[in-house]
Amino acid sequence: MRSNVKRTLQVFAVLLLGVGVFFLYLDKAFPRVRCEGAHLSVPEKYADCVSCHAKSTARATQDWKESKHGAMLVKCVVCHGEPDGKGSIPFSANPDPATICARCHDPAMQRMAAKFGGSADCNTCHPRHQNPLHSDAYQHKAPSGKTSF
């Protein structure tokens, strides 16, 4: 009886090891996110994140398009990196603000830190993708709905 349990455990351990090695192989051999798999026949679209994400994450895509980054053509890969992990910027669905935002906004981040003591996460006050061009200006110009008297 005891030997049967041992035997089962042995088989199970070997199986588990096999599964681990298998996943290690998968991880090494294939990119984490295989966007190009969606349009293998059109290599021109490998990095055209927007055409797919307009459907898969419509809200984020629309927010980006209307944001300053969208208007300035600061594309997805600039902050997120290449999904296959083979680019010059490490791929991350949630880029670390201290590294990624600082690439362009370091002086502003330092000013903010001096003024407000800084924050570990820029996105707390500046939600990701949601910084529309003219937003403040239009808010100032928008009618308040109140009468002057």
Binding site: V21, R32, G81
Partner: peptide, 21 residues
């Protein structure tokens, strides 16, 4: 150990993504 072996491949990427220059 098996699980750790499986995870180790992804570790450098995760570290790289969060690593400060």
């Amino acid at each position: 150990a098996a699980l750790a072996l499986g995870m180790v491949g992804s570790a450098p990427r995760a570290a790289a993504a969060g690593k400060k220059e």
